[in-house]
Measured scan of single mutants.
Amino acid sequence: NITNLCPFDEVFNATRFASVYAWNRKRISNCVADYSVLYNFAPFFAFKCYGVSPTKLNDLCFTNVYADSFVIRGNEVSQIAPGQTGNIADYNYKLPDDFTGCVIAWNSNKLDSKVGGNYNYLYRLFRKSNLKPFERDISTEIYQAGNKPCNGVAGFNCYFPLRSYGFRPTYGVGHQPYRVVVLSFELLHAPATVCGPKKST
């Protein structure tokens, strides 16, 4: 009989979020998941679920829940969905086509923008091939755009693969920082350890 609540607040209220190319993952297990707390949290810009209804989450049990978190621009949030393409979905964070879970995003301009620009948040701009679902690539190898080998030196046709967002408070909404948490639900042939409040007695 599990009684402790799942530590969703640790994920959602973290002081610093990860850059999207180096997205953070927390495994959540052996706890009671009260999703209504999240669902009623006012400032969400997006709360979209795939393969599961957000209002039914509290009735369900899962083997594991993974909480992935990172920061992207407002106009990139739409790429955090199954079957998407674009710089983020291709080179930074890719969801599987059969994704079961929820994508939760909110504007973090007050936290993550600075006058003069916040350059701490990076994304991958160049990559030889697209990421596989949930693949994480933190390499900083110089990207070779031409035929000539770069030998690890940036220059003509040789690019550092990461780019900084440089968030400023005055940017338009599409270019403002958004914090994103992706909850993915794993249902294995194993005992369920993460259940909603109704199922955990």
Results as ranks from 00 to 15, higher is better:
1 N>W: 07
1 N>G: 12
1 N>L: 08
2 I>R: 14
2 I>K: 13
2 I>F: 14
3 T>C: 09
3 T>N: 11
4 N>R: 15
4 N>Q: 14
4 N>V: 10
5 L>W: 12
6 C>V: 05
7 P>E: 13
7 P>Q: 12
8 F>Q: 04
8 F>P: 04
8 F>S: 03
8 F>M: 08
9 D>E: 14
13 N>E: 08
13 N>Y: 08
14 A>G: 08
14 A>S: 10
15 T>L: 08
16 R>T: 15
16 R>L: 09
16 R>H: 14
17 F>H: 04
18 A>I: 04
18 A>F: 07
18 A>S: 12
19 S>H: 06
19 S>G: 06
19 S>L: 02
20 V>P: 07
20 V>K: 01
21 Y>G: 02
21 Y>W: 09
22 A>C: 09
22 A>S: 12
22 A>N: 13
22 A>R: 11
22 A>T: 08
23 W>N: 01
23 W>G: 01
25 R>N: 02
25 R>L: 02
26 K>R: 15
26 K>V: 14
26 K>L: 09
26 K>T: 14
27 R>A: 10
28 I>Y: 15
28 I>L: 14
30 N>L: 06
31 C>E: 07
31 C>G: 06
32 V>N: 09
32 V>Q: 10
32 V>T: 13
33 A>C: 10
33 A>F: 15
35 Y>H: 08
36 S>W: 07
36 S>K: 12
37 V>Q: 15
38 L>T: 05
38 L>Y: 05
38 L>I: 15
38 L>C: 05
41 F>E: 09
41 F>M: 15
44 F>P: 13
44 F>R: 14
45 F>V: 14
47 F>L: 10
47 F>Q: 07
48 K>L: 05
50 Y>F: 10
50 Y>W: 14
50 Y>K: 02
51 G>N: 14
52 V>D: 04
53 S>Y: 09
54 P>R: 14
54 P>S: 12
54 P>L: 14
54 P>N: 10
55 T>M: 13
56 K>Y: 07
56 K>M: 12
58 N>T: 10
61 C>A: 11
61 C>I: 09
63 T>L: 09
64 N>C: 11
65 V>E: 02
65 V>Y: 07
66 Y>T: 11
66 Y>K: 06
66 Y>D: 07
67 A>R: 04
68 D>A: 03
68 D>C: 03
69 S>L: 04
69 S>P: 01
70 F>K: 01
70 F>T: 00
70 F>A: 02
71 V>G: 01
71 V>S: 02
71 V>Q: 01
71 V>W: 02
71 V>D: 00
72 I>D: 00
72 I>Y: 01
73 R>W: 00
73 R>S: 15
75 N>Y: 15
75 N>M: 15
76 E>K: 03
76 E>T: 05
76 E>N: 02
79 Q>S: 05
81 A>N: 05
81 A>I: 05
82 P>D: 01
82 P>I: 05
82 P>G: 03
83 G>A: 08
83 G>V: 05
83 G>T: 06
85 T>N: 11
85 T>Q: 12
87 N>Q: 12
87 N>K: 15
87 N>E: 06
88 I>V: 10
89 A>V: 06
90 D>N: 13
91 Y>C: 06
92 N>A: 03
94 K>Q: 05
95 L>G: 01
95 L>S: 01
98 D>L: 09
98 D>K: 12
98 D>N: 15
99 F>N: 00
99 F>L: 05
100 T>M: 13
101 G>A: 01
102 C>E: 01
102 C>T: 02
102 C>M: 07
102 C>G: 03
103 V>W: 01
104 I>L: 11
104 I>G: 05
105 A>G: 05
105 A>Y: 10
106 W>C: 05
107 N>L: 03
108 S>R: 02
109 N>E: 02
110 K>S: 11
111 L>K: 14
112 D>K: 02
112 D>R: 03
112 D>A: 03
114 K>S: 12
114 K>A: 13
114 K>F: 10
116 G>P: 09
117 G>M: 03
117 G>W: 03
117 G>C: 02
117 G>F: 03
118 N>V: 04
118 N>K: 05
120 N>Q: 13
120 N>Y: 10
120 N>E: 14
120 N>A: 13
122 L>P: 00
124 R>H: 00
124 R>Y: 01
126 F>E: 00
126 F>D: 00
126 F>C: 06
127 R>W: 02
128 K>E: 13
129 S>G: 14
130 N>E: 11
130 N>M: 12
130 N>P: 15
131 L>D: 00
133 P>H: 07
133 P>E: 09
134 F>R: 08
135 E>S: 09
136 R>P: 02
136 R>N: 05
136 R>E: 04
138 I>F: 08
138 I>G: 08
139 S>F: 06
139 S>L: 07
139 S>C: 07
139 S>M: 08
140 T>E: 15
141 E>G: 12
141 E>R: 09
142 I>D: 00
143 Y>D: 00
144 Q>I: 07
144 Q>F: 04
144 Q>C: 04
145 A>Q: 04
146 G>I: 02
146 G>Q: 02
147 N>R: 06
147 N>T: 06
147 N>F: 06
148 K>A: 12
148 K>C: 09
148 K>R: 12
150 C>M: 00
152 G>S: 12
152 G>W: 06
153 V>N: 14
153 V>A: 15
153 V>E: 14
154 A>T: 15
154 A>G: 10
154 A>P: 11
155 G>M: 06
155 G>P: 03
156 F>R: 06
156 F>S: 06
158 C>T: 02
158 C>L: 02
158 C>R: 03
159 Y>V: 00
159 Y>L: 01
159 Y>I: 01
159 Y>S: 00
159 Y>D: 00
161 P>L: 03
162 L>A: 02
163 R>W: 15
163 R>Y: 15
163 R>F: 15
166 G>L: 04
166 G>T: 06
166 G>V: 03
167 F>A: 00
169 P>M: 04
169 P>K: 06
171 Y>M: 04
171 Y>S: 00
171 Y>C: 00
172 G>M: 00
172 G>C: 01
174 G>C: 03
175 H>Y: 15
175 H>Q: 04
175 H>P: 00
176 Q>E: 01
177 P>S: 06
178 Y>K: 04
178 Y>I: 13
178 Y>H: 13
179 R>Y: 00
179 R>H: 03
179 R>L: 00
180 V>D: 00
181 V>F: 04
181 V>M: 06
182 V>T: 04
182 V>P: 00
183 L>K: 01
183 L>W: 04
184 S>C: 10
184 S>G: 12
186 E>T: 11
186 E>A: 08
187 L>M: 14
187 L>R: 13
188 L>F: 14
189 H>P: 15
189 H>K: 14
190 A>P: 13
190 A>C: 08
190 A>D: 14
191 P>G: 14
191 P>I: 07
191 P>D: 13
191 P>W: 09
191 P>A: 13
192 A>T: 13
192 A>M: 13
194 V>P: 13
195 C>R: 12
195 C>N: 11
196 G>T: 12
196 G>P: 13
197 P>T: 15
197 P>W: 15
197 P>M: 15
198 K>A: 13
198 K>I: 13
198 K>V: 14
198 K>Q: 14
199 K>T: 12
201 T>N: 14
